[in-house]
């Protein structure tokens, strides 16, 4: 089933940064900006380096970049939402990437995407409120023979089924509980 949802990924984060976090993000963004001169063509490399520094591009970072490069704020947002490499949400502890390349598409990649969406309660490009998982899609990871493929924490899982989705989640939960028991504080 092709994904016919037409809503663009929304950016009204359920995750809100505290004023201290925001100030810290701004400071680290400015540190990156110092390396660049104020030319519009630096927008993409600047965003890449800010994302390297922060792990994603929070609102306050985009605003700093817009002001520094003297480009309209909406243009920074436009570039961030255009390229798949940019994230508006902080990365979760575990990254879930659902392949929707041609082969995985044919083999039901969208069913898995829906399964993850339902289990995690987030859309693609989003992070769960507890910052445990972030969910996104990728277009072919080069192992189509194993389609449908999900990349879990950088490791490719082949022939995934919705049941396997539950299994993966359960394994993560058990791992977390085990760790909590080992360090009961």
């Amino acid at each position: 089933m092709p994904d016919t949802s037409t809503e663009p990924p929304v950016s009204n984060a359920k995750i809100v940064n505290t004023p201290e976090e925001q100030e810290d993000n701004r400071r680290r963004t400015r540190k990156v900006l110092k390396k660049f001169n104020r030319k519009r063509e630096n927008l993409v490399p600047v965003l890449q380096q800010v994302q390297d520094e922060l792990g994603y591009l929070p609102r306050e970072a985009m605003l700093e970049v817009a002001e520094y490069l003297k480009v309209p704020e909406v243009d920074v947002y436009g570039v961030v939402t255009f390229y798949n490499q940019f994230r508006l949400k902080p990365p979760g502890k575990h990254s879930i990437r659902v392949c929707l390349g041609t082969a995985c598409h044919m083999k039901g990649g969208y069913i898995l995407l829906d399964a993850w969406k339902r289990r995690l309660g987030v859309d693609r490009g989003e992070t769960t409120a507890d910052r445990e998982y972030d969910l996104d899609t990728v277009a072919c990871v080069g192992c189509c023979a194993m389609a449908p493929v999900n990349v879990i924490d950088k490791k490719a899982e082949g022939r995934v089924s919705p049941t396997r989705v539950d299994g993966i989640l359960l394994a993560f939960k058990m791992e977390k509980e085990k760790k909590a028991k080992e360090k009961p504080d």
Binding site: T6, E7, P8, P72, V74, Y77, G78, T81, F82
Partner: peptide, 12 residues
């Protein structure tokens, strides 16, 4: 002013 701009990609 630059309030309006393009964002998102493809059909979106």
């Amino acid at each position: 002013v630059g309030v309006l701009g393009f964002a998102h990609r493809g059909f979106d």
